[in-house]
Nucleic acid binder design. Structure first.
Lengths: 106, 106
DNA sequence: TATAGACGCAACCATTCGGTTTCCCAATTT
DNA sequence: AAATTGGGAAACCGAATGGTTGCGTCTATA
């Protein structure tokens, strides 16, 4: 059972849940009300998100509040970094090319 | 058949392929040699990556070279932006807290 | 022109996934 | 204490996924 962030954010419902609880903790029922799906379905998604530490839970009486572990999101950012470096390098190359053309015009 | 970037990068083999062809275009056979998988399997992954425009192909004789469409990767970056904003805001809040503590110490 | 190599595509198969249903537990309410 | 409510866990099901095998096509080479 591979359970990593990339697989976690692959599902559109899970991405929506993440966005929803990014700012404030919410209960499974409250989350489910925002989509047309059942609590059980949301609960399953939350389990997957919890398993890869993208989400943390906090019991409050009989309610369980779920919130986003923002730190974990940085892992995606970190993975993107290798490509960011490439596209920045390309951009600089383009910049060089452009300034060369500029010089030639002069 | 949902076919978006997030679903595309969910598979670890596909992420590896992306990294592999980020810098230089490669043929399916060459890509397959880098993992212990078959050409057909790689071919299928490449099809998925092509379908969501993460990869482009270029025929050269009887070989087809695949390369990464870096631009498309920015969509992930763009999606991450909403969370980046939040964690930066939190960081600034922390900053405020810290400076308040500092002042109190004085 | 015949043969070999590089590929894509379709069919098939085992596994996984997302969702629903059902059941059970614990905390509130009455 | 009994009924209600929030929520997790397991069983089940249809759909999707990843991989393999086999076949057809096109290009290059002998």
């Amino acid at each position: 059972m591979r359970r990593d962030i990339f697989q976690a954010i692959a599902d559109p419902t899970r991405r929506a849940i993440i966005t929803l609880i990014a700012l404030q903790a919410m209960t499974p029922n409250a989350i489910a009300e925002n989509f047309n799906t059942t609590r059980q379905s949301v609960s399953k998604h939350l389990r997957i998100l919890t398993e890869c530490q993208l989400v943390k839970q906090e019991q409050q009486g009989r309610e369980i509040y779920y919130s986003l572990q923002l730190e974990k999101m940085k892992e995606i950012d970190k993975w993107l970094d290798q490509f960011r470096k490439i596209w920045e390098a390309r951009f600089n190359q383009l910049d060089t090319v452009l300034s060369t053309i500029k010089k030639q015009k002069k």
